[in-house]
Write a protein that binds this DNA or RNA. Structure first.
Length: 311
RNA sequence: GGCGUGGUGGCAGAGUGGUCAUGCAGCGGCCUGCAAAGCCGCGUACAGCGGUUCGAUUCCGCUCCACGCCU
């Protein structure tokens, strides 16, 4: 059974290409996106609208309330279930998105580690605030020297995770991480990267798109999210690009113009990080989005995908 | 035409006769349950040409450019 991976930086035009592809192939779209999972984050995430979603089945969109955290592990379970269901219908799963950790997890697997523990994280956060990140890193070095060596002393997120896993399991994360199994291991995969060759082109698309979102009511969307009263700036959903900056603007941190500017900058940086993953990815076919035959080209690649990809 | 002030990396903006400003932007990279996150790394800039000096972005002269004032 084959699976198609349609990847690319934000703003490259993946969503539109996926829909176009799905209308000419027996395919269903599985979103690989950490922000599209949230209900109510529509404009700022460039979420495919209802009309598009009526046209082609989309999975893993709007599955969560913005107050809830999501995770790569949960994504793996959700995506695996979706892929299986689509295959059961004798259709092709078209995994589309830009959350590269999720693609990576699909391709290489995740070790069996415990889920995040909110209480423990809160406690570690407090200790980091009091004693500093360096102290926690030193603590990690005592219980798991190998992990400490790999994690930079300034990286609070990973230090916290390593400590969390250790306290939850009593075992060093560096040992637990040694084994993992890739969910896509048994499938043929067609990997496609949709991205402009020239960075300047991508930057321009990003800016135009962000401005378009503003014109479409992005600020009002964020305002409405804030008005719920139960969302906070630290939540994963509100840390999404654009939401974070507009939220800070509404907090009075800076003017609207500055918020927009920062939102665009954050989007460019996101694209840059995505491209770093993408460049390191083996066996992908790169496609220029502005080429008129781009969708046909991809459709052709999918149809003629004879090469069972062992990785 | 005269006088004055100023020309610092993509932008902003300090500064010094002999390591490094800095900030923003940009670029490269890392990545195993917060990932649209978190983190690491990267710039012989001192308008040009001469001169003084062991050494000039810093001192002197000329040229060019910008701004202001004057005729």
């Amino acid at each position: 059974m084959s699976v198609v991976l349609l990847m690319g930086p934000t703003g490259a035009g993946k969503s539109a290409a996926a829909v176009a592809l799905a209308t000419r192939l027996p395919a269903e779209i599985v979103s690989v996106d950490s922000a599209l999972v949230y209900r109510g984050l529509d404009i700022g995430t460039a979420k495919p609208d209802a009309a598009l979603r009526a046209q082609v089945p989309h999975h893993l969109i709007d599955i969560l309330d913005p107050a809830q955290p999501y995770s790569a592990g949960q994504f793996l379970r959700d995506a695996s279930a979706a892929i299986e269901a689509i295959h059961a219908r004798a259709r092709i799963p078209l995994l589309t998105g830009g959350t590269m950790l999720y693609f990576h997890a699909l391709l290489h697997g995740l070790a069996e580690l415990p889920e995040a523990d909110p209480d423990l994280r809160r406690e570690l956060d407090e200790r980091a605030a009091r004693g500093g990140t360096a102290a926690l890193h030193a603590e990690l070095a005592r219980v798991d020297a190998q992990a400490a060596a790999r994690i930079h002393p300034n990286d609070p997120q990973r230090i916290q995770r390593a400590l969390e896993v250790f306290y939850l399991t009593g075992q060093p994360i560096s040992e637990l991480q040694a084994s993992r199994q890739a969910p896509l291991a048994g499938h043929d995969t067609v990997k496609i990267v949709l991205s402009p060759e020239r960075r300047a082109v991508l930057h321009q698309r990003i800016e135009e798109r962000f401005l378009g979102m503003m014109a479409a009511g992005f600020l009002e969307e964020v305002r409405a999210l804030r008005a719920r009263g139960d969302l906070e700036a630290q939540m994963p959903s509100m840390r999404a690009v654009g939401y974070r900056q507009l939220w800070a603007h509404l907090d009075g941190a800076y003017g609207l113009e500055e918020g927009v500017r920062r939102g665009i900058v954050a989007t460019r940086r996101l694209a840059k990080r995505q491209l770093t993953w993408l460049r390191a990815l083996a066996g992908a076919r790169w496609v220029e989005p502005s080429d008129h035959g781009a969708v046909d080209l991809i459709a052709g690649l999918v149809k003629s995908s004879p090469s069972p990809n062992p990785s």
